[in-house]
Design a protein around this nucleic acid. Structure first.
Lengths: 148, 148
DNA sequence: CACGTACCGTTAGCCGTGCTAATGATCTAG
DNA sequence: CTAGATCATTAGCACGGCTAACGGTACGTG
């Protein structure tokens, strides 16, 4: 009862410490719940970005995903080998590369989304609406903080 | 404006998707903010567990951190090489090993805690009390979910 | 025009940290 | 005493971050 009783005027450092613990715990749990057939988190993330925003250069992808270019190059190559994206040349700037979702990639996004999120969705279903609201709010805050 | 306008009756799947994005973003950000001198997240986590709960077997540590035993063995060995923990033999069961924080390890916990959390604490300081409340609540929820 | 500089992507190679499978040592039940 | 359970470890794989260094391309300026 010690953590939920004192609610007002939270100390930023304390919240930060708790948040860190929570993040590592849930991350490990989610990783453990990933099925054999599911794409690794990072790779799937790239597909969803392409699905949402359309074709994009590796550099933009890297920036969007807050990753260094070499990391993105490798991830994109893996996806290309799987036939989920294709790399085509840029129309006017030959330094650049355009990464594009293939039909198979688009299918993968749709199919995997359901499968992959099954466990988490199920857990969230058991929460109250208010609790889900807290997590939704936290998501927005965390994304905002990460973007600074 | 599409994500913050509709607030009631959140769909678990939607919350899950957003949450996933938020988790990967903030995790990468935190990793990027880690200083040269700071211990990697996982290793530091082990030190804090030992600091909080006292000496412990690798198996218990693994369970506590939701990791498989081989992962813990390796992490503990790294910490032992750094002189931050020591491995001593169990009093009665010679299969077991007892992992214990060294004085240097205890020092490391105290010192690193401040340094390592500087960035996150600073970010949280700029939030409103209500927003920090949301993150504190979310931390509890996530830890609960991870423990299932 | 040519040259230097800036930019983009890639290659090479490092590290941390998760996993499974298999081994060795020890303990314990029968 | 033997068989099986339990604990830690070793070996080896995957994933996904990173930096440093490099090659090709574009572009501004002399």
């Amino acid at each position: 009862m010690s953590s939920s009783s004192q609610k007002r005027g939270r100390n930023p450092a304390t919240v930060g410490g708790d948040l860190r613990v929570a993040l590592t715990r849930i991350s490990r749990r989610l990783r453990a719940e990933r099925g054999e057939a599911d794409l690794p988190e990072g790779q799937f993330g790239i597909l969803t970005v392409l699905h949402k925003h359309g074709e994009m250069s590796p550099g933009s992808l890297a920036e969007h995903e807050r990753v260094r270019p070499p990391s993105m190059t490798r991830a994109v190559n893996t996806l290309a080998e799987l036939g989920l994206v294709e790399k085509v040349e840029h129309a006017t700037d030959r330094r650049q590369v355009v990464v594009r979702l293939t039909p198979a990639g688009a299918r993968e996004v749709a199919e995997t989304r359901r499968r992959r999120d099954a466990w988490l969705t199920k857990q969230l279903s058991t929460l109250t609406g208010e609790e889900r609201e807290i997590l939704a709010g936290a998501s927005e805050l965390l994304i905002r903080i990460a973007a600074r």
